[in-house]
């Protein structure tokens, strides 16, 4: 059925308005990255400054270990994404499908880990990291990021599983699957949108974090991108050009990840499977 024109117009009007709102501040960041002389502010609305230059971008690759940071960040984020998705998809399944002792309490407890102000946890966290010898290790960072991303991912996956009819798994079990096989062959493929969101979220958690990274990573060659970028910021004498250019570049992989994942956010996976 074709939509009435006024609905189509309404859709595009809303979308266009928000696209403008979304990208304008980012265009400002682009503008900063094009300005010579580390000027954070400008006095007009021009996006491309009169004296624009790509020097900041060039400097990132020639004078700064940008590629090294990029590699580090990609490695950490990929590892966190994989573990995050693996752990969240299984735990979420347990919380959605089984009724077991401590289920509700554990779910709530998982939420509670997000409730303590993170800034207060930093000091003891560092003590922990140092005592366990995790300073300057990828493992330390990975565990922390995974733990940070998991509460949301577990809850999110649980929510998605809840929308998948239980009879599908029952059919699979009668077809000879163990619970594990039913999960793997039937439930997981249907939870793809949830997995995509979980993956995206895990990736973003690892990709943009710098406070804990600054505690764990004490060697410049182990820096992740955000940590490297934060280094361009010094109190009262920041290298805004580099800072902005790097921030723009750092968003590109996110966009790429989103692009490649978003085709799995496809319509109606469970349509036609059951008749409610």
């Amino acid at each position: 059925m074709r939509e009435p024109l006024r609905i189509t117009i309404l859709r595009h009007a809303v979308l266009l308005a928000f696209v403008a709102i979304s990208i304008y501040p980012v265009l400002n960041v682009v503008s900063i990255s094009l300005r010579p002389g580390d000027r954070l502010r400008s006095t007009d609305l021009a996006i491309i400054p009169a004296d624009w230059t790509l020097a900041s971008y060039a400097a990132l690759f020639t004078e700064q270990p940008f590629l090294r940071w990029l590699g580090n960040s990609l490695a950490v984020s990929a590892a966190v994404t994989v573990t995050g998705v693996a752990l969240a998809s299984t735990a979420g399944y347990a919380f959605s499908r089984f009724r077991f002792i401590g289920r509700r309490a554990t779910m709530l407890a998982i939420l509670t880990t997000q409730m303590f102000p993170a800034t207060m946890l930093l000091l003891p966290l560092y003590v922990l990291i140092a005592r366990l010898g995790l300073v300057d290790t990828w493992l330390g960072l990975m565990i922390f990021y995974t733990a940070t991303a998991l509460p949301f991912c577990v809850w999110q996956m649980k929510g998605f599983y809840d929308t998948i009819p239980a009879s599908l798994e029952e059919a699979a079990r009668i077809d000879g699957c163990t619970r594990g096989q039913a999960f793997w062959y039937v439930v997981l493929p249907l939870a793809t949108p949830g997995l995509v969101i979980t993956a995206l979220f895990s990736f973003m958690t690892a990709w943009s974090e710098y406070i804990v990274a600054a505690q764990v990573m004490q060697r410049e060659e182990m820096f992740t991108l955000p940590l490297g970028i934060k280094g361009f910021q010094a109190s009262l004498s920041s290298q805004w050009g580099l800072y902005a250019a790097a921030s723009i570049l750092v968003s590109l992989p996110v966009v790429a990840v989103f692009l490649s994942l978003s085709r799995f956010l496809v319509n109606g996976l469970t349509v036609g499977s059951v008749k409610e």
Binding site: L168, E170, R173, I174, D175, G176, G272, S273, V274, K275
Partner: peptide, 17 residues
């Protein structure tokens, strides 16, 4: 269930989408 040598047809079909 898989080892009982049975097959089942559900009211809502439960086809794998």
């Amino acid at each position: 269930p898989g080892d009982r040598d049975i097959a089942m047809v559900f009211q809502n079909y439960a086809l794998y989408p």
